[in-house]
Structure formats: structure tokens, C-alpha cells
């Protein structure tokens, strides 16, 4: 264990821990926009700078490992002043359209601007201005809002192993884009969307469906493959408007395109909403009572005439354990047959 002090507070952490992680373990907040615990430290936003006694320039806490007896200060006036300058610089090249931004209320940049009180900005000048939209169906890429934190580039390479995007151009013109600035064409897992701190990357389906403050979050499990990813449904007025995933899930917050973007079937107008009974080859709407009575009488007659084994049941790999349990109990205890299966084999 390495012993050091942060803001005078003694902290002990394992060797190799960064100052940032050490501070967070002691519940000392340090602002950052480019850090993600699952990605390679980047040191791009420079907001996590701290003072270390004996080092004559600020160091980025996200990239600097702790050392024995290190004395770290996280909020000196000089450090806070530099952080404010950095925020002013970022905001001097950022559209001021929080009023219509999908990310408002859930935006790391907005949050920092608020806490650092950046209303006046000493810097003005040219802003990046991009014509043309990425026409991929899933991800809105508003690169004017991009702060070049590089999280999307790293998550795409380091987690997804795809490398669909990287930084192109230099200096002020640096821009994150797919090769040759074509439309994004990738696995559309949306990992990049999940790590973007600003409104630069959002789901196209999110647009004008409600912002964070109106949204109820419900943690549940993805309905698709067998990975069992934990997902969070964002619900507004009985409609799922967005899907995300928390870092503490077994999927570590990562999802696939179906899990992240394949939720709109829930609200599909094609959903069955009333029982149907077929008469002369055509379905007609029926009440529950009528439908149930018909099933009870039909099954009862068949069981009586041919025995319970003339009836079979197929359960569903998309229903819950409880439902499947009830269904096999129904087949076995009520109908009286073991003709019960599901599609595990397919």
C-alpha cells in the first residue's frame, strides 16, 4: 500500500493506483471529461490537474500514479483558475444550444460549467462549423458539440475492437470521424454514445422524446440473446424513449445494437391489444371472457375425448421464469400431460 495525503487527508491505496482513483476512493471529487474507468487513461481534457508538492507544474491525476508520501492538493486557487480557463476554452468552441440539446440535464460539460460558474467567457473567436449530417440510422453525430475527449475512439477500439472512428486533421480542425468522413458504418453497438460526455453522440431515436428530468429509469434485463445484459429503460409517459446500461451490471454497461436501439417494438402499433378468435378463417376481436371460455371448453373436450396427451404446450424462452414455471405447472397439473417443451433446441 502507498500512503499519501490528498488535501491534507491521509489516503492509502495499492501501488499503481492513479491520483484520480486514490482521490475518488477517499470521496474527494476531481473534475474530468475524458476519463473512463474502463478505458486507457488519456489526459486530454486537462481538467483533472492537481498540484503535487515538489513538482513545479500541475499534473493530470488520471495519468499519474501515486507515490509514497506524495502531497496532493486538488483545489488550490491556481488549479481552479486553470480549470476555469480550460472550461472557458471548451465553451468558446461549443454551441450554446442547451435549450434544445438532448443531453441537457445529463451533460458533463453543462454540469461543470454550472459548478464553475462559467457565464462570461474571456474567449471568443472561430467555432467549428460542420455542414452535412451522418446518415446512419442509429447515432446522431453532432461534431460541433464534440470536445475531443476521445472516449468514443477508445471505447470503439479498446472495448468493441472495431476501430470505426479516429481523430483526423490537426489543431483546431481536429475532428473525430469515420475514415474519409463517410457515414458511420459499424456494428452500431452505441458504446460511443454511452460514454460521450456531451450531446455530440446521441441516439437518433431519442430526439425530442423527453429529457432527463422527465424520465423515469427502470432497471431490467435485455429481452434478446442469452447474455442477460442489465439495461435501464428510460420511460416518459408510458413510452420507452431510450435505453442505457449501468456500469455495475454484469455487462459493465456495454450493449449491442439490439439491446441499445432495438426497443421500439414495445410501442409498435402492430402489438396485439385485444384477444382474437378465428371464425371461418378470419380473426375477429373478442373479449377476454369469451376467449377464455372458448379455450376452456375446447381443451376440456379434447382432453375428455382423446386424453391429456392429445394436448401439448410450448413455453417461451422470452417469458420470465415465473411465467414458464406457471405454464409447465398448467400443462402438468391442470391439463395432465408432460407434453411441454420450448425452443431451447433452436
Amino acid at each position: 500500500m502507498i500512503h499519501l495525503t490528498i488535501n491534507g487527508l491521509p489516503v492509502s491505496v495499492p501501488e499503481g493506483t492513479t491520483i484520480l482513483d486514490a482521490a475518488r476512493s477517499a470521496d474527494i471529487p476531481i473534475p474530468t471529461l475524458c476519463h473512463h474507468p474502463k478505458l486507457t487513461p488519456y489526459g486530454g481534457c486537462r481538467l483533472c490537474i492537481v498540484e503535487v508538492k515538489g513538482i513545479n507544474r500541475p499534473v493530470t491525476s488520471c495519468t499519474t500514479p501515486v507515490a509514497a508520501d506524495m502531497e496532493v492538493a486538488t483545489t488550490t486557487p491556481a488549479i481552479e483558475g486553470m480549470r476555469k480557463t480550460i472550461l472557458e476554452l471548451i465553451l468558446s468552441d461549443h454551441p450554446n444550444d442547451c435549450m434544445v440539446c438532448e443531453k441537457a440535464g445529463d451533460c458533463a460539460l453543462q454540469e461543470l460549467a454550472y459548478f464553475y460558474g462559467v457565464r462570461e467567457n474571456r474567449f471568443d473567436g472561430e467555432r467549428r462549423c460542420y455542414a452535412g449530417k451522418d446518415r446512419n440510422p442509429f447515432i446522431d453525430r453532432d461534431m460541433e458539440k464534440c470536445i475531443l475527449c476521445g472516449k468514443c475512439v477508445r471505447v470503439c477500439e479498446e472495448v468493441q475492437g472495431v476501430g470505426a472512428i479516429d481523430i483526423a486533421y490537426r489543431g483546431f480542425n481536429a475532428k473525430i470521424c469515420p475514415p474519409f468522413e463517410k457515414d458511420l458504418s459499424c456494428e452500431f453497438c452505441g458504446q460511443c454514445v454511452s460514454v460521450c460526455p456531451t450531446g455530440a453522440l446521441t441516439g437518433k431515436a431519442w430526439t425530442q422524446r423527453g429529457r432527463q428530468k422527465d424520465i423515469k429509469e427502470v432497471d431490467t434485463i435485455c429481452p434478446y440473446c442469452g447474455c442477460g445484459c442489465g439495461i435501464t429503460l428510460h420511460v416518459r409517459r408510458n413510452e420507452i424513449v431510450r435505453v442505457s446500461s449501468r456500469e455495475e451490471t454484469i455487462n459493465e454497461g456495454w450493449l449491442c445494437p439490439k439491446g441499445r436501439f432495438g426497443y421500439t417494438f414495445v410501442n409498435s402499433p402492430e402489438r396485439l391489444h385485444v384477444p382474437l378468435i378465428k371464425e371461418k378463417g378470419v380473426f375477429r376481436e373478442a373479449g377476454w371472457d369469451e376467449a377464455m371460455s372458448l379455450i376452456v371448453s375446447k381443451l376440456g373436450k379434447i382432453k375428455k375425448k382423446y386424453g391429456p396427451d392429445a394436448i401439448g404446450g410450448l413455453a417461451s424462452a422470452r417469458c420470465t421464469n415465473e411465467e414458464n414455471y406457471l405454464f409447465q405447472k398448467f400443462m402438468r397439473a391442470v391439463i395432465g400431460t408432460n407434453n411441454i417443451d420450448h425452443c431451447a433446441r433452436l
Binding site: I167, G171, N173
Partner: peptide, 21 residues
């Protein structure tokens, strides 16, 4: 320097641009 900045960090990417302006 502004045109040769790699664009990774904020002070160099935007800061030198503002200095130049």
C-alpha cells in the same frame, strides 16, 4: 504551432487558436 497541434488536449487545441486570434 496552432496548425501543428495534434488536437488531443484542450489548452493546446483551443488555447493556441485563441492566442493566435
Amino acid at each position: 504551432t496552432q496548425s501543428e497541434s495534434c488536437g488531443k488536449c484542450v489548452p493546446c487545441r483551443i488555447g493556441t487558436k485563441r492566442l493566435l486570434e
